[in-house]
């Protein structure tokens, strides 16, 4: 086997399957403990993607659903950061897919009937690849918060959904990114299903004035960390040669 195993997943760091305040988890959370198994080739490998899989506007949600000469409505933002593993190494050439509501908090989805209007020029779907140094970036608009049927008066903080691939299927991750300073973060049962405030904080993107383009577009920084790999003798030898 060419790949060393991934570090074990810390299940106490992730949200538990059942979080009572998140109503949808009640009928969908497995009741048995996850069965720990060793990683085999099946879990150590995974699909690979290349630039040929992507279109030129896939990483630009401001334009990729807009009519010619038009653009999506809402505050323009760059979301960027590094895709890393727990060993601090860049994870290059990995597919990152994102989806989000428009500036009014409405999704372009057949099942979303929220009264905020659709934006003709916004689809809410984007994707990009991490670069050789793990960096990724896309342009979009700031999504709006939206109400959802859960408790009597629940609103999601503004957020962007992320789907991330790693080197192996065991690294596959779905998560959400939030925005610094959003008062809904503390009130949201989905966010608060994560037991540890440090873990929540890591999902909050920071305003990044250094990457902000004057008179054009603000930037938010969001680093994504995937599971690392166990150290091996083999690896140390590689580093020494």
């Amino acid at each position: 086997m060419t790949d060393t195993p991934f570090l074990p997943r810390d299940l106490d760091w992730h949200p538990p399957a059942l979080h009572h305040d998140y109503r949808s988890s009640r009928l969908r959370a497995p009741q048995q403990k996850l069965l720990h198994i060793p990683q085999t080739e099946t879990e150590l490998t995974g699909p690979t993607f290349g630039q040929g899989d992507l279109g030129p506007l896939d990483d630009d949600l401001i334009l990729n659903y807009a009519a010619n000469g038009q653009s999506a409505q809402g505050p323009r933002i760059i979301v960027h950061g590094k895709l890393l593993d727990e060993n601090g190494r860049a994870v290059p050439n990995k597919l990152i897919e994102v989806w989000q509501a428009n500036a009014g908090g409405r999704y372009r989805h057949v099942n979303d009937g929220y009264l905020a209007p659709l934006d003709d020029n916004f689809g809410g779907c984007g994707r990009c690849l991490s670069g050789a140094d793990g960096r990724y970036s896309f342009r979009t608009i700031l999504p709006g918060p939206y109400p959802w049927p859960n408790g009597a008066n629940d609103w999601r903080p503004a957020h962007i959904h992320f789907s991330v691939f790693g080197d192996g299927f065991a690294q596959r991750l779905i998560t959400q990114m939030y925005f610094e300073g959003d008062p809904h973060i503390k009130l949201c049962p989905i966010v608060q299903s994560i037991p540890d405030d440090t873990a929540i904080n890591r999902l909050v993107a920071r305003l990044d004035m250094d990457a902000t383009v004057p008179m054009d577009i603000r930037a938010y920084r969001f680093d994504i960390v995937l599971r690392g790999r166990q150290a091996t003798v083999f690896e140390n030898q590689m580093e020494g040669t």
């Binding site: 689809g123 789907s163 966010v191």
Partner: peptide, 18 residues
């Protein structure tokens, strides 16, 4: 700082992204 990002649900609109 170098722990895996915590997971969050894909939500009901996962179709849009994937």
């Amino acid at each position: 700082d170098l722990k895996e990002n915590a997971s969050q649900t894909a939500g009901p609109y996962v179709h849009i992204g994937c």
